[in-house]
Design a protein around this nucleic acid. Structure first.
Length: 496
RNA sequence: GGCGCUGUGGCCGAGUGGCUUAGGCACAGGUUUGCAAAACCUGGUACGCGGGUUCGAUUCCCGCCGGCGCCUCCA
């Protein structure tokens, strides 16, 4: 069975073949670390994770790399993102969102970048984003690759694909790369007319073509700056991914490159141009796969609408009013097809919580029945065959889940086989894991347990009023109560 | 204006030229239960609008309307 993927480069479905048999080189555009990552970022990242896990299910050995962008790129020529982050950090410290003492000096961009990098990794691990467990090896930081960027820029200049403009800025010459526009469907003429009045005239006049993009900008005053053959300054945004992908995954091209749909142009278009021209190769990535945007309650997520949520806003209950288990957020963010807009809602989260609870219960039941012993299964097992066929169809997760959920409800006469099947399914879904369950401890849990005991005692006396009162206290604390036939009371924390 | 994606029942969300027409949540009825919850069983409601092709279209074609992204900050 071959994996079918929708390639943004050709705008059609294609059978996946890797450059090296059995191995996949996968690159995902990662977060900028000027602030906490939001749920839209994680939708895109978790799509990359789902792709990686699916490839692994199909027995590929996947080398996945994702960058961390920690260079403070310029905004509007005035402020840069690191300075903005420093200001925000000072506010966040005041409001308590960032604990006092978390950062010694908010004016040190490296401290800010490091703080948000660690925060990102923490969130990503809770969400079972596999690559976050491979930091730092497969999660490179842009500022560690300045030297490589400079070498690539030099090579582009040597090959006449880049030039130093009269103001000292190094630009990539899009006219030197006829295929520029291949990914986004743009042409240089259209770009020229589309640019309109957005870009200041002074800047444009120094470029050979309006679409030429910056590779290095000399700027003594920039908050993060490095020495270079073109003066002290900082690199352009696009060059870092070309360099890190090349150094970590090899110069002879990568198999799959992923990112959010907004990165198609200009970012990925520019990566292709730089990489192909610097390496003298025809291909950079053979498959480009882009995830669509996330909406919140039917609207675009934006700070001004107040529907802009970070992952930790969701975990802690800031977003919806109740705490959300990371597995529920993960499920919510992966449950719909990556090429469809997804609508993030409180109701959706509650739905997801129900499914996740069912999965957790199912797994613990099988663990109990088998003592953790599993049978041998492979992908020819009926459920796994259907599950993987669905995923092979451009990661059709909805269809895959539509097979799994009814299967869970079925009778499971051979729990050891079912557990093995479940583990294979879960290796892709990433729902249950020991780490999150262990992290579930709650200071009021002992109190809740005590109410549970009260309820059990009251029930044995048939004192229904006392039983109901105890149950209400448990429910109010955000827990759910289940009665078992033998008279015991099982208490579970609500997942969302 | 250009490029690309998209519109399915109360909600989320697959899929298909006709066949038993996903799955989840919610809702209704039932089993169970002190009452709930959970679990299990049963049930109803679809394919943006207008044309065309066809014996037959939600599915193909054309047009229209709506939503989303990009067109040098953006997952």
């Amino acid at each position: 069975m071959s994996l079918q993927l929708y390639n943004s480069l050709t705008n059609q479905m294609e059978s996946f073949d890797s450059i090296e048999p059995g191995k996949v080189r996968l690159y995902s555009c990662g977060p900028t670390v000027y602030d906490f990552a939001h749920i839209g970022n994680f939708r895109s990242f978790l799509f990359g994770d789902l792709l990686r896990r699916t490839l692994e299910l199909f027995d590929y050995q996947v080398h996945h790399v994702m960058n961390i962008t920690d260079v403070g790129h310029m905004v509007e020529g005035e402020t840069d993102k690191m300075s903005e982050a420093a200001n925000r950090m000072k506010e966040n410290k005041k409001s308590g969102r960032v604990p006092e003492g978390a950062i010694e000096d908010p004016n040190d961009p490296y401290q800010i970048a490091d703080y948000y990098t660690q925060a990102f990794l923490e969130d990503a691990r809770k969400l079972q984003y596999k690559i976050a467990f491979e930091y730092p090896d497969n999660v490179p930081k842009a500022t560690d690759y300045i030297d490589g960027m400079q070498k690539m820029i030099s090579r582009l200049i040597d090959r006449d694909h880049a030039y130093v403009a009269e103001d000292g800025v190094v630009y990539f010459s899009v006219e030197s790369f006829p295929r520029y526009g291949e990914l986004s469907g743009n042409t240089l003429e259209k770009l020229q007319s589309g640019a309109g009045g957005r870009v200041s005239d002074e800047n444009q006049s120094r470029k050979r073509h309006p679409a030429d993009f910056m590779l290095w900008k000399p700027d003594q005053h920039h908050v993060m700056k490095w020495d270079s053959p073109w003066g002290v300054g900082y690199p352009g945004w696009h060059i870092e991914c070309s360099v890190m992908a090349g150094q970590l995954l090899g110069q002879d091209g990568i198999d799959i490159h992923t990112g959010g749909e907004d990165l198609i142009f200009p970012h990925h278009e520019c990566e292709i141009a730089q990489s192909c021209c610097a390496n003298g190769s025809d291909h950079f990535a053979r498959y480009w796969i882009h995830a669509r945007f996330l909406m919140v309650e039917g609207e675009k997520m934006s700070k001004s609408k107040g529907n802009f949520f970070t992952a930790r806003d969701v975990f802690t209950g800031v977003a919806t009013g109740s705490q959300v288990h990371p597995a529920v957020l993960r499920y919510e963010l992966i449950k719909s097809h990556y090429r469809a807009n997804m609508n993030f809602t409180k109701k959706g989260l509650e739905d997801s919580a129900g499914v996740v609870q069912r999965m957790l219960d199912f797994e613990s039941r099988l663990e109990r029945e088998t003592g953790g012993e599993v049978a041998e299964v492979d992908r020819s097992h009926p459920l796994l065959a259907k599950f993987s066929a669905a995923l092979a169809n451009d990661l059709n997760i909805s269809e895959a889940l539509a097979e799994v959920i009814p299967w869970i409800r079925q009778e499971h006469p051979d729990p050891r086989e079912s557990l093995a099947v479940w583990r294979a399914v879960n290796s892709v879904l990433g729902i249950t894991d020991e780490e999150n369950e262990a992290a579930d401890s709650d200071p009021i849990f002992e109190q809740v347990q005590q109410w549970g005991d009260e309820m059990k005692d009251a029930r044995s006396r048939k004192d229904w009023d006392a039983s109901d009162a105890a149950r209400q206290k448990i429910l109010d604390a955000g827990y759910e109560v289940q009665l078992v036939k033998d008279g015991s009371v099982v208490i579970k924390k609500s997942l969302a």
